[in-house]
Computed example of a mutant assay.
Amino acid sequence: MAKPGKQGGRHYTEAEVRAILERALRDAQAREIGHDELVAAAEEIGIPRAAIEAASRDIELVRGEEAARAAIVARRRKGFRSHLFSFLVVNAFLFAVNALTPGPWWFFWPLLGWGLGIAFHARAALSSEVSPRQIRREIERNAERARREERRRLKEQRRAERLERKERLERSAEELGHAVEEGMATVLSRIAQEIRGSVPPPPPPAGDAGRRQRIAPLDVDDAEPEALDEEDAQGAARGPAMRRRG
């Protein structure tokens, strides 16, 4: 409770309190006041929370009745405008038919009969009086519409959640499959490397092919002494032959 100041000795009647609150609300109409703020403000001036809750329920009920009454009146007037448009169009067509064809004037008979009906419709549509039964039915209809909308919203929300869970599961399964494939590829690569490292090289083939294969890897430096030996052998063979000729 706020401490009383210089103006703490002032007192107001109930009508003055109501007028002060209404003026304060008009000054603060730029923003909406929440329910908790309203309760806190009421407790500051000594109004219990239960009274505020009951008053707020009554205000909500009155607001719902006013909205229902406005919806009923708007629906009535919309129906009357549609009825009046049909009345004017059809009777203008009948007048044109009667004026363009020979014979007596007869179009005013349907005009008169239909005119009486639209006059009664105008009396009901332009009136702002709505019975409590109609208001109650409108409130129940609005409540049922709100429940259907809420069920539809919850259904859409559950469907979206199911789709999101399904997408997450599919992404998880795909990631798991990629991880398993990479792991298997790594394991198989290691096994293949171990197998290649443990197998000894094949033995060289036997016979002439083996000798050729053993001789083949000789370098050029190894082949040069072999060529020199062949030249020495040829020179030694030519020496006796030349001595015989001499």
Score class of each variant (00 low, 15 high):
Ala2Thr: 08
Pro4Cys: 11
Pro4Asp: 14
Gly5Leu: 05
Lys6Ser: 02
Gly9His: 14
His11Ala: 13
Tyr12His: 13
Tyr12Glu: 01
Tyr12Thr: 00
Ala15Pro: 05
Glu16Ala: 06
Val17Thr: 07
Arg18His: 10
Leu21His: 06
Arg23Ser: 12
Leu25Gly: 08
Asp27Ser: 03
Asp27Phe: 07
Ile33Ser: 01
His35Lys: 15
Asp36Glu: 14
Leu38Gln: 08
Ala40Met: 11
Gly46His: 00
Ala51Asp: 09
Glu53His: 04
Leu61Ser: 13
Leu61Tyr: 10
Gly64Trp: 07
Glu65Met: 15
Ala68Leu: 08
Ala68Thr: 03
Ala68Lys: 02
Arg69Ala: 12
Arg69Pro: 01
Val73Asp: 05
Lys78Thr: 15
Gly79Cys: 04
Leu84Met: 10
Phe85Ala: 15
Phe85Trp: 12
Val90Cys: 00
Phe93Pro: 01
Phe95His: 06
Ala99Thr: 11
Leu100Asn: 12
Gly103Asn: 02
Gly103Cys: 03
Trp105Tyr: 11
Phe107Val: 10
Trp109Ile: 10
Pro110Ile: 00
Leu111Gly: 04
Gly115Leu: 07
Gly117His: 05
Ile118Val: 11
His121Lys: 09
Ala122Glu: 01
Ala125Gly: 01
Val130Lys: 02
Pro132Trp: 01
Pro132Gln: 05
Gln134Val: 01
Gln134Trp: 04
Glu140Gln: 13
Glu140Ala: 15
Asn142Ala: 14
Glu144Pro: 03
Arg148Trp: 03
Glu150Ala: 11
Arg151Leu: 11
Arg153Glu: 08
Lys155Thr: 06
Glu156Asn: 05
Glu156Gln: 06
Gln157Cys: 04
Gln157Ala: 12
Arg158Ser: 08
Glu164Phe: 03
Arg165Glu: 00
Lys166Gln: 08
Lys166Ile: 03
Glu170Val: 04
Arg171Asp: 12
Arg171Met: 11
Ala173Ile: 04
Glu175Lys: 12
Gly177His: 14
Gly177Arg: 15
His178Gly: 06
Val180Tyr: 07
Val187Arg: 00
Ser189Asp: 06
Ala192Ser: 09
Ile195Asn: 05
Ile195Gly: 00
Arg196Asn: 05
Gly197Gln: 12
Ser198His: 08
Pro201Ile: 01
Pro201Asn: 02
Pro202Asp: 00
Pro203Cys: 01
Pro204Ile: 02
Arg211Gln: 10
Arg212Ala: 13
Arg212Val: 10
Val220Gln: 09
Asp221Leu: 07
Glu224His: 08
Glu224Arg: 10
Pro225Val: 01
Ala227Thr: 09
Gln234Leu: 14
Ala237Arg: 11
Pro240Ile: 06
Pro240Tyr: 09
Ala241Asp: 03
